[in-house]
């Protein structure tokens, strides 16, 4: 089947999609967007997190055909031409990126949170990233990055 969707604001069509394929495979293998990572394909690690019609979801658990007509946002859509997004910049400043495998998923999860609540407390941040595993940082720097992003002056 063909699946037509909007990815990072642009209409895209993936051809020859098989019924048992998931959205993560569609993005990575058919559209060449390898920012969302594949680690478990069980919904356990969150490294495949993308925004689907605004909500943070595990792309590995979305049947590809269900993405027909959906608005999908991936980590590739966050940075501008020559500028990181504010949250990305905060990740660097806080030292929240080590191997970086978990980072795209975390940015998408935190993006949903910061859209809903521009100044979440530490508990809220921790609860919101409970579905994103990081094997490197121990999470502290990630939480700091999120708090930094939340407290940044408007427009920064």
């Amino acid at each position: 089947m063909n699946v037509t969707l909007t990815v990072n604001g642009e209409p895209r069509t993936a051809e020859g999609v098989r019924v048992h394929e998931n959205l993560l495979h569609l993005l990575r293998a058919r559209l060449g967007l390898t920012g969302a990572k594949n680690a478990c394909e069980q919904g356990e690690c969150g490294s495949c997190t993308v925004r689907m019609d605004g909500r943070a979801v595990c792309a590995c658990l979305v049947p590809a055909g269900q993405a027909e007509g959906a608005d999908i946002r991936t980590v590739e859509g966050l940075a501008g031409e020559d500028r990181l997004s504010a949250t990305q910049a905060c990740f660097l400043r806080a030292g929240a990126v080590q191997c970086g495998f978990c980072t795209p998923g975390l940015l998408m999860s935190l993006g949903e949170l910061l859209d809903e609540d521009p100044d979440p407390g530490e508990d809220v941040v921790r609860e919101r990233i409970a579905g994103n595993l990081c094997r490197c940082t121990g999470y502290q720097k990630i939480v700091e990055a999120a708090r930094l992003a939340a407290s940044r002056p408007p427009g920064a």
């Binding site: 069980q42 658990l61 049947p63």
Partner: peptide, 26 residues
């Protein structure tokens, strides 16, 4: 049938569960 896919897709991704068709209720 498939709704959110969070049960079904785990089975399809890993257990090689390959239903002949999906009835997508979304």
């Amino acid at each position: 049938p498939v709704s959110g896919g969070t049960d079904l897709m785990v089975r399809m991704n890993l257990a090689g569960h390959r239903p002949a068709a999906l009835l997508d209720l979304s």
